[in-house]
């Protein structure tokens, strides 16, 4: 037994030494990407195809770890605590600002170094086919008659809540919110008519064409070529452009050469035609920004989100 043990330790030691020597050649082992939401959600659906492209250019497998829970803050904490060696990536979207200002977590976007922005998904206000409204106007009129009675399914405090809240303010109407975390449960409830409205995206196009759902308005700058009949909120007189933007960051303190390597791979991956194609299926556009531009961008939307949360009275003192 003793002999066996010493052999085992000798082997372990040898590998440890060769392991550090190889460490100069980043990456020499699989890389973990933390997605702070459950598998099968829209964030997961966007980063899975991205990970496939990323590993092609990184030369090592990129393994997705869904660390879900508590509005994405469990994953955030774990990513923040991870070693800044480039072997832990963190997939984020705007929620990271929102949950911070809502006081749910102390993790802030400045705890990370940005690598790149990957994609943009415009929000679409979607109504159940069991409601009488065919257009935005009919809905708005009905909402004025019955304030606080039209039900909206939303992940409270996250993007699907902020988006209808912005509409409430701009149109001068009042909704009633019901908690449905994630797009899939919201769609089930919308199809069954258990909620009236929700924030969705162009992935639901098929159901709209089948007459199961109705798109009332899209929150992009221009109409989408795939759904030319859906008006933008801007056309309807509300100055709202609302896109969910997703990107990759690493824990603060990750060495610059490692970040550069990741940035390169990310740039190539985000520009792959296959990635653009799979993003289209997700109602999303591939929207690449490099580390510097992404950093500036994060600063900008952090300010905006703070303002929105303050306006809506969701901010914690």
């Amino acid at each position: 037994m003793g002999k066996l043990l010493s052999t085992v330790f000798a082997v372990a030691l040898a590998t440890a030494i060769t392991g550090t020597a190889a460490g100069q050649q980043y990456p020499d082992r699989p890389v973990k990407m933390i997605v702070p939401w459950a598998a099968g959600g829209d964030t997961d659906n966007i980063f899975r195809p991205f990970a496939v492209e990323l590993q092609k250019h990184l030369g090592q497998p990129v393994v997705i770890a869904n660390v879900a829970g508590a509005s994405g803050t469990v994953g955030a904490r774990e990513a923040k605590a991870a070693a800044p060696d480039g072997y832990t990536l963190y997939a984020v979207h705007d929620y990271i600002h929102l949950v911070h200002y809502a006081g749910i977590t102390d993790v802030k976007y400045t705890d990370f170094d940005p690598i790149c922005l990957v994609s943009a998904t415009p929000s679409v206000l979607t109504a159940s086919a069991k409601t009488p409204w065919k257009t935005w106007k009919e809905m708005a009129e009905d909402a004025k008659k019955r304030p606080g009675q039209i039900t909206v399914g939303a992940t409270l405090g996250s993007t699907s809540h902020i988006f209808p809240a912005l509409i409430e303010k701009a149109a001068g109407i009042k909704f009633k919110y019901v908690s449905y975390d994630g797009l899939a449960p919201r769609m089930n409830a919308l199809l069954g008519g258990h909620i009236d409205l929700t924030d969705s995206n162009l992935t639901q196009k098929g159901k709209v064409e089948a007459g199961l759902l109705r798109f009332l308005a899209i929150a992009s700058e221009k109409r989408n070529p795939d759904m030319p009949d859906v008006p933008t909120l801007k056309e309807l007189g509300m100055n709202i452009v609302f896109e969910v933007l997703r990107g990759v960051v690493v824990p603060k303190g990750t060495p610059a050469p490692v970040r550069a390597k990741l940035g390169d791979a990310c740039a190539k991956a985000a520009k792959e035609p296959a990635f653009a194609q799979s993003m289209k299926l997700q109602g999303t556009t591939a929207a690449y920004l490099d580390a510097a531009a992404y950093a500036k961008f994060l600063d900008k939307i952090d300010g905006e989100n703070k303002a929105i949360m303050t306006e809506l009275g969701l901010i914690k003192k």
């Binding site: 459950a38 598998a39 099968g40 899975r48 869904n66 994630g182 899939a184 769609m187 089930n188 199809l191």
Partner: peptide, 11 residues
Amino acid sequence: MTIHGIQSGPL
């Protein structure tokens, strides 16, 4: 199923 990104349910 959830680990593989598939949400079971009526759909």
